[in-house]
């Protein structure tokens, strides 16, 4: 049976440390644009940790929400692309083919999660930082969109490995960089088509919700958090 990759994000476990953001940058050769360009809205973080504050000072609570591409089944970014750069892969990944992208940026507008990022300039790495680039991941040139791939290079490698060893993929064996780096295991990645996988079970947890679920994009990322009826008085 085909894979159907998905993720569960346990908000009750997330400490907002942003290790996932750093790991993602390192794994996927995401350029850092510098303070000036970041202030002009050119920063690229395939996964970001959104901070929300609850309550009034001094009784303030911070909530963190890591947001990455939700790899929607009915992803609004896909159909609007005139060149099929954005489309759904057989494994249910929301794939972005850089070579086909001509940079209309329509996908970025259509995405309600704002998790698509645009290369406004050609990326640069100061020496010797160019030596730390991941050879498994292509560098994106100016004018193309990029976004979270669920570390598709690791998925491909794992598929080759299990084929050569003639075995099935073990749950948890394959992890994207963010999940691997998460110290509290708030991010759980796996195959949603395997009912026994951790991610499949967590996706059916009563704590689970989907982000902006009512917009109908059918995201494959589930957010887990204590539901409101748990909280006696939040404020």
């Amino acid at each position: 049976m085909a894979y159907r990759w998905g993720m569960a994000v346990d908000l009750d476990r997330c400490t907002g440390c942003e290790a996932c953001v750093t790991a993602c940058h390192a794994e996927n050769n995401i350029p850092t644009v510098g303070a000036g360009q970041a202030a002009r809205g050119r920063a690229m973080h395939w996964i970001r940790v959104e901070r929300y504050y609850e309550g009034d000072f001094p009784d303030v609570r911070v909530k963190f929400r890591p947001v990455l591409c939700q790899h929607c089944d009915a992803a609004p970014c896909e159909a609007v692309c005139p060149t099929y750069a954005s489309h759904q892969s057989e494994d249910g990944l929301n794939a972005q083919v850089y070579n086909r992208c001509i940079g209309t940026r329509y996908c970025g507008n259509a995405c309600m999660y704002n998790v698509r990022f645009f290369n406004f300039f050609n990326p640069e790495w100061e020496k010797p930082l160019n030596l730390q680039l991941n050879p498994d991941v292509s560098i994106r040139s100016v004018g193309v969109m990029e976004k979270c791939t669920f570390c598709v290079q690791r998925i491909k490698a794992a598929k080759v490995l299990i084929k050569s060893e003639n075995r099935d993929l073990k749950d948890g064996e394959l992890q994207p960089a963010c999940a691997q780096a998460c110290p509290t295991t708030a991010l759980v990645f796996g195959d949603l088509n395997d009912p026994e996988s951790r991610v499949a079970r967590l996706s059916h947890s009563p704590r689970g919700t989907k982000l902006l679920e009512d917009l109908g994009a059918e995201p494959k990322v589930t957010y887990l958090q204590k539901q409101a009826w748990y909280e006696p008085d939040a404020h």
């Binding site: 809205g41 050119r42 940079g103 990022f117 004018g143």
Partner: peptide
């Protein structure tokens, strides 16, 4: 590169 224009995320 188109970054010389003011368009930005989001």
């Amino acid at each position: 590169g188109i970054g010389v224009a003011g368009i930005r995320w989001p």
